[in-house]
């Protein structure tokens, strides 16, 4: 199968990357297996749970149903990319800690990435709007309550600056 593999170039967490990818592989596979970015979690592999969400050119996607070859030329951000070079974490990560929005931690990376997408828009959202925007993520531990609180707190903090 000569067309089985294809070379792609993309930016991952601010660094330029090249990879030969199996055309059948998902972006989640590429990120987990080739780049060992294991914050990208697999909970269903069919785009139902949101655990694998990453930002592609600033937009939140289920990386399990996004083909790796489509990432060619794209700018990809995973949870690992939110941390500064000195290990300092972002405001939304800190809010997840402070609001007890983390329990088992398996949905957390994906949920934080969608929160980043929302927060980066710099708009004031109602609780209801936050819930709608975050609804692509399933969480069985938290009842979503403290995740909403963490997103809201960070949103208000950013808007008041």
């Amino acid at each position: 199968m000569p067309d089985q593999y294809k070379l792609i170039r993309c930016t991952v967490n601010g660094r330029e990357k090249e990879a030969m990818v199996d055309v059948r592989a998902s972006l989640a596979d590429l990120l987990r297996n080739d780049f060992r970015l294991t914050s990208v979690k697999k909970g269903c592999e069919v785009g139902e749970c949101g655990a694998c969400n990453v930002l592609i050119d600033g937009e939140s996607f289920n990386s399990c149903i996004y083909l790796a070859v489509w990432a060619d030329g794209k700018d990809i951000l995973t949870l690992e990319g939110l941390e500064g070079p000195d290990g300092k974490i972002s405001d939304i990560q800190q809010a997840f800690i402070d609001e007890a929005a983390v329990q088992c931690g398996f949905c957390t990376p994906g949920a934080i990435m969608s929160a980043v997408e929302i927060l980066n828009e710099g708009r004031l959202l109602s609780d209801e709007e936050i819930r709608v925007r975050m609804s692509g993520h399933l969480c069985r531990c938290t009842g979503y309550e403290n995740i909403v609180r963490a997103v809201k707190k960070t949103m208000l903090a950013r808007l008041s600056q």
Partner: peptide
């Protein structure tokens, strides 16, 4: 006291490893 979770930092940074993250390729 509402002490912060001892595992929260690792979980919000992706450093907490789960079974699949630990398995050799």
């Amino acid at each position: 006291k509402p002490v912060k979770r001892v595992d929260a930092f690792d979980k919000v940074t992706g450093r907490a490893r789960f079974t699949d993250d630990l398995c050799d390729k």
